[in-house]
Amino acid sequence: MSETTTTCTAVRLAAAELALGILVGSERAAVLAHLETCAECRAEVQSFAAATDALFQLAPEADPPAGFEVRLLARRAEAERENQPEAPAVIRSLDSRRARPRRMRALLAAAAVVLLGAGVGVGSLVSGGTSQPRLAEVRTAELSWHGADLGDVVVTPGNPSWVFMSVQDGSYAGWVRCVVTENGRAVTVGRFLLHDGYGGWAVPLSVSPGAVSGARLELDDGTTVAAATL
């Protein structure tokens, strides 16, 4: 139990509504915040969620109209032909765009080296100084999804090493989560904002650059929208 008993009492009174998905606004936010730190209240909500699930299972079954399956498969096939328009917005409408020149990635890598070496921009955020990496030691990879080239990933050596990500071809606007594969383990290194499909950022890594084998961008629901293999 966290905070005060009164808070727990209030949360438990609202737990059923939360499990039913009908708690809204500030009340919902307050309950969710409390659940972050209170295992007992989380268990209470989970028990109500199980009861809610049982209610859904009582729902009637009914035969869908003839041709349901055919129409569904056609819809799916059409989506595939249109380069998966139902996929996350970040990769929408990419089929009409030309692939970006490969030299873009080299430019980003060079920019990363310059930024770190000059101690400006992101490099200036590093306390204790930054060693300048050599361009030949910088690793680069295409950030893509379903064959669409969306941007670039650059990992620089040094202490600390940095990961740079650049998205230039999406239409998604909003927060994305950056997940890096370090020693085979997925580690979230930050959340970043894309403006109209464009964005760039850099974060220091806590492991050696050689331990990084991949990076990806995810939406908050865990959907991967772009990935790179290093």
Binding site: A59, P60, A62, D63, P64, F68, R71, L72
Partner: peptide, 30 residues
């Protein structure tokens, strides 16, 4: 095939419109 009757049935029970329920069930499966 395993779920279409349940999803369509649930949607139909809620919206009471077969064509809308089909649209919902298909969107859910997609």
């Amino acid at each position: 095939r395993r779920y279409q009757r349940r999803l369509f049935g649930l949607a139909l029970g809620i919206v009471s419109d077969p064509s809308l329920a089909e649209e919902i069930a298909q969107e859910a499966l997609i």
